[in-house]
Design a protein around this nucleic acid. Structure first.
Lengths: 130, 130
DNA sequence: CGGCATCCACTTGGATACTG
DNA sequence: CAGTATCCAAGTGGATGCCG
């Protein structure tokens, strides 16, 4: 494999890797939701689970990945039944530009798609509504 | 369902929808690769398939989604066995800011992660190398 | 050549029950 | 409370063959 790659230059491949890294971090159903909540204020495991309606198994997995990527910190509190607090890191805040760009383009895209004389199929509606 | 959502305000929900729309468009294994190639110059189906090493079935599906989102155009050429040309649209070019932001942050992220005294686990390496 | 149909492997997300 | 184990449903990506 690796015969004919679409990227002639090393710079292109590296650029693509960087984009993919970002995509890996923000993709998925929950990562951005969790980060959004934690960026407002730190939360305990159960609070997160309840607030965003996510099962413990998934939440645990997501938080571990976010912690590996240094986007959240995990702090065990020495309380009675033991609680754990999760908080967004400074590094998580640097995601702002990416979120903003995606927010802007999402709006532009929506306008581009629905602001047309009779969209061809209803396929599209469903795709955007989901 | 829809009981307790983490988004108090309407603005937040709308912002999140816009971000999700963008994510839906650029996520996945191939969409950005296809767009990158088509942004350089228009290509025929087979050329695309060969250049980036993707099976016809997947390529077809991806192209249809991209066309629905007005990111590529599909042109049937009246040649002998019949060829089809795909080209990136102007709308596809507006994705530039998003890509750029993801590129920048991807680099920052990589530096943040690997530029540390002894990363805890080798988990991380694999996560970033894949 | 373009692209659909079939079948299949792997991943993602989820419900539930259980442990320290 | 925090987190794991099990089991499971659905989605995604892929190989191969066929057809106009």
């Amino acid at each position: 494999m690796m015969e004919s790659r679409p990227y002639a230059s090393r710079e292109c491949r590296d650029a693509y890797r960087a984009v993919r890294d970002t995509l890996d971090v923000v993709s998925g159903k929950w990562k951005l939701v969790i980060l959004a909540v934690l960026l407002e204020e730190k939360q305990r495991f159960k609070e997160l689970s309840r607030k965003i309606g996510i099962s413990p198994r998934i939440l645990s997995k997501e938080l571990q990945e976010l912690e590996l990527n240094k986007l959240v910190t995990r702090t065990v509190c020495d309380t009675r039944p033991v609680t754990v607090e999760y908080a967004a890191t400074e590094h998580a805040q640097t995601l702002g530009d990416v979120i903003h760009a995606m927010h802007q383009w999402g709006q532009l895209h929506h306008a581009t798609i629905v602001g047309q004389p009779r969209p061809k199929t209803s396929e599209l509606e469903r795709a955007l509504e989901k």
